[in-house]
Amino acid sequence: MQDLIIEATIKTPEVRFIASNGLLTLRGRSIPENSIDFFKPLHDWIDGYFLNPQEKTCVEIKLEYFNTSSSKSMLDLFKKMEALNGVQTKIEINWFYEEDDEDMLEAGEDYQAILNIPVSMIAVDEL
């Protein structure tokens, strides 16, 4: 299966979804006016990947900013993964945030509260 690589723009994050090691990374800013268009290929890729996933799938979220439209699209993506968790692959989400960024920590905690996938909060000096 092909990897999904999308370069960052001023309003959308860098995407690195690597099929061969099950590492799925979003990095940068996700603030498009309408997040549906941007997230569509991510959903499509996940559908394909889960036909034959790695034993472990690790999602790394390293976002500096994201808007509420993206927060909903991201949840939909996580929900899709949640439905498949434990079937053929074990999924974990690593939520990175800058140490002083309480809002980003809280945003990660929102997903922790909603999802039945383990979400680990990881503080770093700089994303």
């Binding site: 498009p32 006016e33 309408n34 549906i36 509420t68 439209s69 927060s71 909903k72 699209s73 939909d76």
Partner: peptide, 8 residues
């Protein structure tokens, strides 16, 4: 649900 405009 997310609307067509991408709002929720």
């Amino acid at each position: 649900a997310i609307s067509e405009k991408g709002t929720a």
